[in-house]
Amino acid sequence: MQISKLSIIIPAYNEGRTIHFILDKVKQVTLINNIAKEVIIVNDCSRDNTEEAIKNYITTNPDLDIKYYAHEVNKGKGAALHTGISKASGEYLIIQDADLEYDPQEFNLLLKPVTDGFADVVFGSRFMGGNPHRILFFWHTIGNKFLTTLSNACTNLNLTDMETCYKLFNTKILQGIELKERRFGFEPEVTTKISRVPKIRIYEVGISYYGRTYEEGKKIGWRDGFRAIYCILKYGMFKIQ
């Protein structure tokens, strides 16, 4: 399949110290088949210097196509993704966190099933393949696997990592789905709703994972896990739209 542009959506909240690192990594990536990159950054009302850092980067890197949007109030990661998805103009889009946990050099791993003509959606799994994974939290791993299993039971998919950041979508298909979750419930909601699209082709590839500790800026916590369970049951088992 021919793709001319990939939209890279980056939600950002209090990432002023590291946002330039991830943008450098995105800039350095050469996508397969000379696919162009469109970077969409959504600042979710950060309280640090995130906006200043982004605007400085745009000024000093005019060769990278960056579109910047800012929320006037903090709405949550899911809401930032909603904004970014609505602004995407590439045939496909991928979600990239503003931290350094995921490596943009692996965009091509997710693109390959699409360009080969097999996939409409590709999940990047932290739990399969031989790529490097930082060893961190036992209970986070158990929690992620539990949430994935529960989600699979509701969607009849066999994913290994539903909660992964790296999800690549056909843009028109995703823009045609009404998404409501404004915070970390985005992952189970989008997984459930994309699974219901008729004849959707979902693939999964192994990716690296360079996780952060809470001291290094990790934001997701146990409350988000309970919200994810609620969303899986709400959109999956009870099929609430």
Rank of each mutant, 00 (worst) to 15 (best):
Q2M: 03
A12K: 03
E15R: 14
G16K: 04
Q28R: 13
V29P: 01
L31H: 00
I32L: 15
N33A: 13
I40K: 02
D44R: 08
N49R: 09
T50R: 07
I54E: 03
Y57P: 04
T59F: 11
T60D: 13
D65W: 02
D65Q: 12
Y68A: 04
Y69A: 09
V73F: 05
G76R: 10
G78R: 04
G78L: 04
K87C: 04
A88H: 07
S89R: 11
S89W: 01
G90L: 09
I94E: 00
A98Y: 06
D99V: 05
L100K: 08
E101M: 12
P104C: 08
P104E: 10
E106K: 00
T115W: 01
G117K: 00
G117A: 07
D120T: 00
D120E: 13
S125V: 04
R126H: 14
R126E: 14
F127I: 04
N131C: 06
W139T: 14
W139Q: 14
L147I: 10
N152D: 05
A153M: 14
T160Y: 12
D161I: 10
E163M: 15
T164M: 05
L168I: 03
F169P: 01
F169T: 03
Q175R: 08
Q175L: 07
Q175P: 07
P188C: 12
E189A: 04
T191L: 07
K193W: 06
R196I: 01
R201Q: 14
R201L: 08
I202F: 01
Y203W: 15
R212K: 15
Y214V: 12
E215V: 04
E216G: 09
K219S: 11
I232N: 08
Y235C: 06
G236K: 11
K239Y: 07
K239N: 15
I240S: 03
